[in-house]
Structure formats: structure tokens, C-alpha cells
Design a protein around this nucleic acid. Structure first.
Lengths: 130, 130, 130, 130
DNA sequence: GTGGTCTAGACCACA
DNA sequence: GTGGTCTAGACCACG
């Protein structure tokens, strides 16, 4: 269900956060749908349960998933984007960094924009999924 | 000359690498121009010299600056983009991550593309500056 | 009759205890009045009967409701406040925590006191209801 | 420096978060002042470093403390209250719960308000501390 | 020396 | 069965 690369240097728990967000965006996970339990997923991905838990807590903090006591973890029914200024500013900085790197890797403006478009399509953004 | 934010969680040495790359892109630093010495910059930015050193080494590894023994560090005269497949793939992953985050922050496709355009203009990319 | 929020992280049984206490305070439930049976309430609130049971037990322990074998559960006729020192001390700690949090949320002393007054009015405290 | 009660059922990491917030409020910790390192505090309080870390991360998330890479953890220079509506609503619910409990413990409105006033004085709120 | 991540394993509250 | 907390101990990146 989720792809985790143990050799990737980005923390596993962040990779999982990202994977869940993408899965929801792509419609693979739907609002109110149940996520695998911490233990289940730990077994599936051969990752420590604590690591899974950290991911779930982060996703809950962002309002993307919800925990029902003793029943499990679910995709939030109504996700409300935050428009958090601070996080938007960080995002913009990250984007700037990427554009700079892209230039030094030899990508020109057109190639870059095409890459963006392709990724947006892949993620089915602009569609009705949450 | 370079903006470093100690509170930012991205490593200081990476921030500096980024700042130098941007400065060159914007034409603030021109090919063959001399960079501040490690010690100078360490004093200016009140940062550990080892950290500056690490940034310069990274930039040299990427072929963006060159060290002339005993003379100082200079912006490379002729930078050749690498087209490094591995790094391109990482860049794409980073970009995907950002697009997903943007969505969860409430940005739609249009707003995103406009942000990209704005940043590209800011960086004067598309022009002849290295 | 009682509002339960499954997404709220405070245990459901505690939420219910709270709701019952408030209902009595507001006069919605009067001394000697019968409470819904465990099963009834479990169906109404779509909650596990064991959870309801736990709430009722807690309320009985506090002397707020009484169980008459085979007849049902009733609001106690004469509630005598306990003046339990231990619980008073815990309450004070909880209150301190809230005041601190309020400060960090940007509330000043006036706004806080006004909030307290408002809540007291809402709860009709200061009146003769139990 | 910080009082932790291992027997208290509220999680240790939350107790510590609370203690730090209070210490700042009371002026025992001043903006820009360095907090004990995770390891130091772990030894002092005979608590696992991971637990301390969890507290520090929560405080950082709330913008109350800041981490400077490799240099340690510091009280934020300029704390900006969030006015987070959701958290305010939770706070109000907590406050309501306490008022109800206070009533059932036999406190009347006057006694309650006096307790609030006393706590506010203890915390030196209303003064110039941050 | 600083914090950040991860694992292994344990215990507990809740439903 | 569910997630939440805590410990012990290890490794790593950063400055």
C-alpha cells in the first residue's frame, strides 16, 4: 500500500506521512476510510510500530486523519486546508530551492514547467478528490 | 551578503550553499569573482568556520566554485550542468512532495503555477546569468 | 440528550459523565428523575454498552446518581458535596494549567474572567439547581 | 528547576511542557535563555531523554522555545500568541468541565473566582513577563 | 556536545 | 484489538 525506502535518508516517518497524503490525493484512500492499524502496518512494512505512530500523530496534527479511541485511525471526513502563513512561507522557500537546483542541473524554464504539469497530473490534482 | 537563519532547521551549511547558488543566479556574483574567505564569512555570519568550509566544499564538488590554492575561492568560469540522473530523480521527488503539501495548504493549481512563475522571475532565470 | 464527540480524545465515558453532570446542573435532569437505561443510551449514542456502564458507575461512585436494582438509574435526591481535598487539589492543578494555556493563546486576565463569568451563567450556577 | 511527579497519571512529557510554560510565565526563564540540554535534564530528573525530547518538540511546535542546531534549545525571543480558534474552543470546554467539577466539590461562585484570582497572582499574569 | 531518528520491548487505558 | 506512554540503548548529522 505504501512505498517506504529504508535507504532513503529522509526519515521513515516523514516518508510515510508523504505516502499517506499522496494516497488520499490520488483517491486510493477516501474520507472516513480506515487506515491500517499501527501494528498491522508495522508488520507489513517491517518498521517499528513507534515509527508508524509518529507518522500517524503528525498526520492527525495536520488534521488529515483522525483517531477514534479503540476503533482505529481514519481519513478525516472534512479536511480544512489551513492557509497557515508560516508553512506557506516555508513551502515557498523549499520551492525556490528546488528551482535553483533545477537550473544547476541544466533544466530550463520550459522543462521545469512541464515537469510540474506532469506531476500535477500524476497526483490528479485539480480533480474532485479532496 | 548571504542570509542565514539559525532558527531554520535546515542545516546552516546547506542554507549557505543555497544562498551562494542564488547569488550567482541573480548575477550578484559573477563568474571568476572572488568569494569571501572562510574566516571572513565566519566572522560576518557569526558561524563556525568549519560550517563555512563544509559549504564551500559542497559547492566545489558541484563544480560551481573553484579553489585556487593560496589565492582564495572563486565562482567557476564555465559551469557545465551535470544532468545527473540521480539528482534529477531526487529533485523530482522533492517537487512532488511540495506539490502535495501545497494542496494540503489550500493552494490550487493556478495559485501554484503563479508562485512558480513569480519565483522564476525573482531568480531572473531564463536570462543569460549562469 | 447528551452530546458525545467520538473524535474528541477525552475518553467517551468521561465525556458522558460530564454531560450528565451538566444536565443536572442546568436542571435538565432533576433529582429522582430516571436516567435512560444503559442499553437505550448505547443505542441512541451508538456507543458500546460497557462504556455507558463505566460512566454510570463513575457517577454513582461520586454520589450523583443511584442505581435501584431492577428499577433503573436515578439522579440522587440529596447530593452532598464531598469537599474531597485530593480532588480539590487536582482541580486546582487543572485550573492552573488552563490559565497558563489561556495566556499562551493570547487571552489576558480580563478576557479570561469574562469567559469564566459567561460559563457560570450558561451553567446557571449560583442558582438553586443542585 | 522543574517539578515532575512520576506517580501523577498525566504523562511526564506533558507535565514538563507545563512546567516550562509556567517557568517562563513566572520569569524564571527569560526570552533567549538557554534551556538545559535534553541529556542534562534527563539526568537531573531521572527521566529518559526521549521523554524530555518529546516535551521540547511539543514546546517548539507551539513556538515557545527554539532549537539552534548543535547549540542547544532556547526560550523563543518573540512569542506570538496564536489565537488558534480550535485550541481556544478546547480550552473553553476544559474550563467548563472544571467549573462543573468545582460545583460538585462544593465550591460556590465566590470561592471559585477567588481561586482563579489567586492562581493568576501566583503566575504573575497581567505583568510584563512575555 | 547538541538534538533527531529508530528499534525493541514493556505497560496501560480505552472500547 | 486499538492507540498512548515510557524506557533503554544505539546510531547519525550538525557545529
Amino acid at each position: 500500500m505504501f512505498r517506504i525506502d529504508q535507504r532513503n535518508s529522509t526519515p521513515i516517518y516523514q516518508q510515510l506521512v508523504q505516502e499517506v497524503k499522496e494516497a488520499i490525493l490520488k483517491g486510493l484512500l477516501r474520507p472516513s476510510e480506515r487506515l491500517p492499524s499501527v501494528r498491522e502496518l508495522a508488520v507489513q512494512l517491517t518498521i517499528n510500530p513507534n515509527t508508524i505512530q509518529k507518522s500517524y500523530q503528525e498526520l492527525e496534527r495536520q488534521g488529515i486523519i483522525e483517531n477514534l479511541q479503540g476503533k482505529g485511525t481514519f481519513v478525516a471526513e472534512h479536511y480544512r486546508p489551513t492557509k497557515d502563513r508560516e508553512r506557506l512561507s516555508i513551502l515557498k522557500d523549499d520551492l525556490r530551492r528546488i528551482l535553483v537546483d533545477a537550473h544547476y542541473l541544466g533544466l530550463n524554464e520550459d522543462e521545469l514547467l512541464r515537469m510540474v504539469e506532469q506531476l500535477l497530473t500524476e497526483l490528479k490534482m485539480g480533480e474532485d478528490n479532496r
